[in-house]
């Protein structure tokens, strides 16, 4: 029987939502939550012997968390470790990737996780473990389990996986030799002809995408600079007048803070559904530091705090959407003569 340890967060372990995201690592015997579907999928070939869970905030804020998790996993002497799947949850993706990578490195046994392509954990860990492609929310759990189960069994048995495209996981960047029917020159000409005809074709050697932006020059004179505040932490006027969604935001907000000395729990709140809102709702300056910047403006340290702040909810929000909002925001900031931006994220 193949022994499996499952790593999940406190939510999937049934230990509460965001208000419990600070829970340190713990372990239970057997399976819980998504582990139930996995275990059923193995049809007796493998068994989840224990489940280790940890709050996502705790994991990401405490460097030692991974060591504790690894200790709990090691005691079970597993043949393979399953993490998540994390879908498009960023903190959970980082936690799953960190654990999966540590399992391979420290225990020298295979590991597997699942994520949506825009989860930052994909880029961080796809070369360090097997990350199965999933949908962007837990609604895709059934499909995720279905594609992760056969790969888990193959990995545990030491069988070779097929190509990333055939098996549905993210390329690990490892190249393997294989025989093709046509020689390289013919395949290259075929591809070129397709390209010339405007037809779709699949390259055999995708170029890495360096999606980087050169750093902008530093501001020279802080005392005369206008600084704008932008946040993905979802701070909005109380009541959320523009109805920015708590996850997968379809819009951003722009709000006037002229003459406002400090944000306050009486007038602002967070619309973000991906973190415990208690601290931010009591004092929104903890996410968007209007109070401090207003003081600095009065003291002449900065020239001016820009009249408007921009805000959206960075919780499972599509990269394409965030890009679109920021493009529009950037244009307005330029037009308004803003010299620098402080962008806060939760």
């Amino acid at each position: 029987m193949i022994r499996i340890v499952h790593y999940i967060n406190q939510f999937y372990a049934g230990k509460g939502g965001e208000e419990m995201a600070n829970l340190p690592p713990e372990k239970i015997e057997g399976f819980v939550g998504p582990g139930m579907a996995f275990n059923a999928g193995f049809k007796g070939e493998a068994e989840i012997v224990a489940t280790v869970y940890c709050g996502d905030s705790y994991f990401n804020e405490n460097e030692g968390a991974v060591d504790v998790v690894m200790g709990l996993i090691k005691e079970e002497n597993p043949d393979i470790v399953i993490c998540g799947p994390a879908f498009n949850a960023g903190r959970y993706g980082v936690a799953c990737g960190t654990v999966a990578a540590a399992v391979r490195e420290q225990l020298e046994i295979p590991s597997i996780t699942g994520m949506y392509e825009e989860n930052p954990g994909v880029d961080m860990f796809k070369s360090k473990t097997i990350i199965v492609k999933t949908r962007n929310s837990a609604a895709g759990m059934r499909d995720a389990v279905k594609s992760m189960v056969p790969l888990t069994l193959k990995l545990a048995k030491g069988e070779e996986l097929g190509t990333p495209a055939a098996e549905g996981y993210f390329s690990t960047g490892i190249r393997k030799g294989l025989f093709e029917e046509k020689r390289g020159s013919q395949r290259a000409v075929d591809m070129l002809l397709k390209k010339l005809a405007g037809e779709p074709f699949e390259t055999e050697y995708p170029m890495p995408q360096f999606d980087r932006v050169d750093p902008s020059p530093a501001i020279a004179d802080l005392a005369s600079a206008t600084i704008a505040l932008v946040t993905s932490g979802g701070i909005v006027p109380k009541g959320n007048p523009d109805h920015i969604e708590s996850s997968s935001a379809s819009r951003y907000g722009k709000y006037d803070i002229e003459g406002v000395d400090a944000l306050s729990g009486a007038t602002e709140e967070t619309a973000h559904g991906g973190y415990d809102p208690v601290a931010a709702n009591l004092d929104p300056n903890r996410v968007l530091p209007v109070d401090v910047l207003r003081d600095m403006e009065k003291e002449g340290i900065i020239g001016k705090l820009h009249r408007y702040y921009y805000t959206t909810v960075g919780n499972g929000t599509a990269v394409a959407s965030a890009k679109k909002y920021a493009e529009a925001i950037g244009k307005e900031l330029i037009a308004d003569g803003v010299q620098a931006v402080i962008l806060t994220s939760t």
């Binding site: 999606d211 020059p217 993905s232 890009k323 920021a326 950037g330 900031l333 931006v341 962008l343």
Partner: peptide
């Protein structure tokens, strides 16, 4: 968002 704003030439922290 950081990158898109930085593209305009405004520095972002």
């Amino acid at each position: 968002m950081v990158k898109e704003i930085e593209k305009t030439g405004i520095p972002v922290v």
